[in-house]
Structure formats: C-alpha cells, structure tokens
Amino acid sequence: MPFRVSTDAFHLAATEAFRLLPPALLEPLDNVQIFIEEAYEPLPHEHPDTQLFGYYDGVALTERGIDEMGRLPDRIVLFKATFEQACQNWTDMVRELRITLVHEIAHHIGLDERRIHELGWG
C-alpha cells in the first residue's frame, strides 16, 4: 500500500534526507536548487507508465565554461507520487530520497549513469 504524505511532510522528508548526505558530496554543489513536483509526466517518446524519482536539469560542473556567470540555477526535481508509490513508511521515504539526491548530485558533479552505478549510487 502506498505511503501518502502531505506536501509539507514530503518537504520535511527531503530536508531530512539532504541533511544525511555526506559533506564531501555537498561541497561541490554550485548554483543548484531542489524542486518538488507532484508526479512525473512521461514525455511523448516514453512509455506512459514511466516513473522517475527525480532528475537533474542543468550543466554538469565538468561541462561548464567561463561564460556560466548569470545563468539560472541548475535544478534537481523530485517527484512526490513516485516516492509515495515505492515507500511503505517514513524511513523508506527518507532512504529513497537520500539515494535519489546522491544520484542527481552525482550528475551535477559530472558522473554519467555507468559511473554512478559502478559507485553504487543508484
């Protein structure tokens, strides 16, 4: 059975998960904001049942040039409904949020999916 939470409670869970991240992972964060959306809407080329926990939208640190000043912040987007479907309780939700944040921050740092999985980061 899905574990439903209010939007405020989901924000608290995401904040708790963020606080559990190792300082060394947070140190390189540069101009990134975290957003919460209710549910993922699959793109036209995706299967309609596609579910994402989150995604990184931005320019990885390894791809940035000297002309990056003044650009909008990169974004990490988390999808509340996906976490609710996958989690049984608060502890599960915080754990899944932490895993997702590590994964998306790894993209910000410049790691690709292959390397993220090699490191065991989801």
Rank of each mutant, 00 (worst) to 15 (best):
Y40K: 01
R95D: 15
L97D: 08
D74R: 01
Q88H: 14
E38H: 13
L43K: 15
E68P: 04
R64Q: 08
E37I: 05
L29C: 10
E68S: 13
Y40A: 01
D57H: 12
I34G: 08
R95H: 14
P44A: 04
M69N: 13
G110T: 01
F35P: 01
E27F: 10
I99E: 11
A39L: 08
E96M: 13
V94L: 08
H108M: 10
G110V: 02
V102C: 04
R75Y: 08
E84R: 06
V94F: 02
A106C: 09
T100N: 10
Q51V: 14
I109K: 09
Q85N: 15
L26A: 06
V94W: 01
H103K: 07
A86L: 08
R98N: 04
E96N: 12
L61H: 00
Y55H: 11
Q33C: 13
R64A: 03
N89Y: 10
L78R: 08
V59H: 07
R75A: 10
L78T: 06
G54N: 00
A60G: 09
G58A: 10
A60E: 00
L97R: 05
E84I: 00
D92N: 15
T91G: 10
Y55A: 03
T82R: 00
Y56L: 04
I109D: 03
R75H: 14
Y56F: 15
L29T: 13
M93D: 02
L101S: 04
H103S: 02
D92R: 14
V77K: 09
T62F: 06
I105V: 05
R64W: 01
E104N: 00
H107A: 02
R64I: 00
I66Q: 14
L61Y: 00
G65I: 00
E27A: 14
Q88N: 15
L72H: 11
Y40C: 03
T91E: 15
D67M: 12
T91S: 14
L97H: 06
K80H: 11
K80R: 15
T50S: 05
V102T: 12
E37V: 10
E37A: 11
Y40Q: 05
W90Q: 11
F83W: 06
I76N: 00
I34V: 15
E38Y: 11
T100W: 02
V32K: 12
I109V: 05
A86Y: 12
I66P: 12
E68G: 07
A60L: 05
P28L: 07
L52R: 13
L61K: 09
K80M: 10
D92F: 13
I76W: 05
K80I: 03
D30Y: 12
Y56W: 12
M93Y: 04
Q85R: 15
I66V: 12
I109P: 06
L101M: 07
D49M: 11
Y40P: 05
V94K: 00
Q51M: 14
I36D: 01
Y55D: 07
H45N: 14
I99G: 04
I99D: 14
D30E: 15
I109Y: 06
E96D: 12
A106Q: 00
P42M: 08
G65V: 02
F53E: 02
Q51E: 15
F83R: 01
P28W: 07
V59M: 09
H108G: 03
H108Y: 04
G58R: 04
I34H: 04
V102R: 03
T62W: 01
P48G: 02
E68Y: 06
G70Q: 05
Y40N: 01
M69W: 15
L101T: 05
T82I: 02
N89F: 06
H45Y: 15
